Amino acid sequence: MATATMQQTPLALFGADSLLNDEERAIRDTVRRYVESTIKPEIADWYDEGQIPARALAKELGSLGVLGMHLEGYGCAGTSATAYGLACMELEAGDSGLRSLVSVQGSLAMFAIWKHGSEDQREHWLPKMAAGEAIGCFGLTEPDFGSNPAGMRTRARRDGSDWVLSGTKMWITNGSIAAVAVVWAHTDEGIRGFVVPTDTAGFSAPVIKKKMSLRASVTSELVLDNVRLPGSSVLPGARGLSGPLSCLSEARFGIVFGALGAARDCLDTTISYAREREIFDRPLAGFQITQEKLADMTLELGKGMLLAMHLGRLKDSGDLRPEQVSLGKLNNVREAIRIARECRTILGAAGITLEYPIMRHANNLESVLTYEGTSEVHQLVIGQALTGHAAFR
């Protein structure tokens, strides 16, 4: 009869820790401890109830230093992009909704102000957002325009020295709890971005309910009904679609790492379950088909980790291109959801319960698969890079 041997974790087989420096390991471990102690004991109930104490968590995450952590100055930690990616991985091992909160705050709302904003906008908003005292959201997607943001119908018109915004945004993470929204709109000067305090008259953010995915995340509609803003609200450094697309590229980078966290949590859980679960008087882990599944999933998780680390080093050196981010987002999310689904087959009926994280991660990854660019959009980005021909229309 076969005997058990010393167990290794999937990423240990790849020697993944050897790719990190001491600071990166310390940041990763700090975020991992927070997720293990604070998030995992509660997340199943939050998911089941369809709500999350986002404001309280934002302050905890601010104290942890992960909000806008890869940005310089204004109360931000100024870490490497790779360290930020590793933090995203640990956060998403807790739940994709938690990583989304951090990603939208730091890589969309904060990054937009940090990169494209005025000095007054940066000084006013970024320190509060880094501390988690003010939550931000990012209004680009509309009910009829997701993959084609250039078609947005939200408009901003000049009225004297003011701007007046009208339109609707959809599927906005953090929208209903945000103190500030970065909103993109068509103007006579092209697409521009605006910093919109959410207590401005005419602004509302109804919560989107009855979700089957990202239930432990605040998702909202933004309604702008003749929202009047001073001229100083416009982002001076962003003109045209390149402004919001630069922010999306930042957020997608975090997803390259984050999705692996969900996959790793599924795989670690499944290996532990298979070792303990007995069937036909022997551990489920001792069957060849089970080991085949575990081996194949480990290969994809490890390859995804190597890809993420390579892209992280490219970003830290200033050499990362948007089409390379598309490579990472397309591959790692696609493989993560496959891992989650395969893990469910090993757990059987137990895999659909909230006692285990498998189905929760799988459901969440359905959203991650399509937000920040669908798989099809990233395939076309890669195709354009390979052929020189844009096939979006």
Rank of each mutant, 00 (worst) to 15 (best):
I289L: 12
Q291C: 09
Q291Y: 06
L294D: 04
L294Q: 06
D296Y: 07
D296L: 12
M297H: 08
L299Q: 12
L299G: 08
E300V: 14
L301H: 03
L301P: 07
L301W: 13
G304A: 00
L306W: 02
L306D: 13
L307P: 04
A308G: 10
G312K: 03
G312E: 08
G312M: 07
L314S: 14
K315N: 09
K315H: 11
D316P: 12
D316Q: 11
G318F: 07
G318D: 11
D319S: 12
L320W: 04
L320H: 07
L320P: 03
R321H: 11
R321S: 05
S326M: 05
S326N: 10
S326L: 01
L327I: 13
G328C: 02
L330K: 02
N331D: 13
N331W: 15
N332L: 11
N332I: 04
V333C: 08
V333D: 08
R334F: 12
R334L: 07
E335V: 12
A336I: 05
R338N: 11
R338D: 07
I339Q: 05
A340V: 07
A340K: 04
E342F: 04
C343W: 00
I346S: 00
G348I: 04
A349H: 06
A349M: 08
A349C: 02
A349G: 06
A350I: 03
G351F: 09
Y356P: 00
P357Y: 02
M359W: 09
M359G: 00
H361C: 05
H361G: 00
A362H: 09
N363K: 03
L365D: 01
E366D: 08
S367T: 13
S367H: 06
V368A: 11
L369H: 10
T370P: 01
T370M: 07
Y371F: 14
Y371W: 13
Y371A: 00
E372H: 06
T374M: 14
T374K: 01
S375K: 14
Q379K: 12
V381Q: 12
I382H: 04
I382W: 01
G383H: 02
G383F: 02
Q384L: 08
A385V: 05
T387W: 05
T387K: 02
T387V: 09
A390R: 14
F392K: 09
